[in-house]
């Protein structure tokens, strides 16, 4: 009987004694390139890569070099780099999924040089959010200033369609910064006129979306942002068609509008609750 009691005490002690060791054993070190921009990138990359007792990564934002220290009996550089890519960062071995990249904060949107452009005509029906994002980032020489604003706006709209408040906040921050970058002196007359009418309200509401606590407040502001964007759309001379769409139910049945790159309705005011509610009321070319 005594011996059983002793055993009972011994087992937990044994269990405890093995679990207080943070060192990486059998350490191997490799250096690899991981794309990224800033300190926030560094944080995300390292926390995605690090693994207790198995992997520790130090990434330098200037050289883009990561030093990976890992226990080769427990993990491989490939496993670590896969986690980094899943967190949104392209590297020598893996490319991030498009939605992981899209989810990065604006300041972290590094240029995706590793991603090869798609062959024309080979891919059918890619959805708007992924392709437009990667191309807009890659083209550093944008002649039409409004184009970048519309790209940010559509990303914000897509986040609202997905009822993703966090993402919408990030996208709104991005939109705000794009709006602030507009150089009025380089706008055409008609654009300048429209811009002067809406820009203050637009920036203010975009900021409100960025700081809003919940998706309902974001959507309320988005209604007015969309109205302002519609004014800009008329003069923006975008190279693709833009659809002005209408949901009759939102705003206590008074209805609300938004802009979309595609004719199919994806409602940003209700998201999945009534994704396909609404109709296109105007096509701007």
């Amino acid at each position: 009987m005594k011996s059983i009691l002793n055993l009972l005490i011994a087992i937990p002690t044994l269990l405890l004694s093995t679990s207080c060791d943070g060192q990486i054993k059998n350490a191997k070190i490799v250096t690899v390139k991981i794309d990224g921009n800033c300190e926030m990138c560094e944080k995300t990359i390292e926390s995605a890569a690090n693994q207790k007792k198995a992997a520790s990564v130090d990434w330098n934002k200037d050289t883009k070099q990561a030093t990976i220290t890992y226990d080769d009996s427990k993990t491989t550089p490939d496993e670590i780099l896969k986690r980094v890519a899943l967190a949104g960062y392209d590297n020598e071995k893996f490319l991030a999924p498009d939605d992981a990249y899209a989810g990065l904060p604006g300041c972290c949107k590094y240029e995706r040089n590793r991603k090869k452009s798609e062959l024309k005509g080979s891919v059918t029906g890619k959805s708007e959010d992924t392709t437009t994002e990667s191309t807009s980032v890659n083209q550093s020489t944008v002649t039409n200033q409004f184009k970048t604003i519309f790209d940010s706006y559509f990303e914000l709209k897509n986040a609202l369609v997905k009822t993703d408040a966090k993402m919408a906040g990030l996208k709104a921050t991005h939109l705000t910064s794009q709006l602030n970058k507009v150089d009025m002196s380089k706008l055409e007359n008609s654009q300048h006129e429209a811009w002067m009418k809406v820009y203050k309200d637009l920036i203010a509401r975009s900021e409100l979306i960025a700081t809003a606590k919940n998706i309902e407040d974001q959507r309320t502001q988005f209604m007015v942002v969309s109205k302002n964007m519609h004014e800009l759309a008329k003069v923006a001379k975008l190279d693709t068609a833009v659809y002005y769409q209408h949901c009759p139910m939102y705003n206590d049945g008074k209805g609300a509008n938004w802009l979309s790159m595609e004719n199919a309705v994806k409602n940003p005011y209700y998201g999945s609750q009534m994704l396909n509610c609404g109709k296109t009321i105007e096509t701007i070319k």
């Binding site: 997905k162 009822t163 993703d164 919940n214 998706i215 309902e216 998201g271 999945s272 009534m274 509610c277």
Partner: peptide, 15 residues
Amino acid sequence: TGRKNDRNTKEHDHS
């Protein structure tokens, strides 16, 4: 149907 922490929206409201 969204992540768990996005549940603050009123569910099934209009669905």
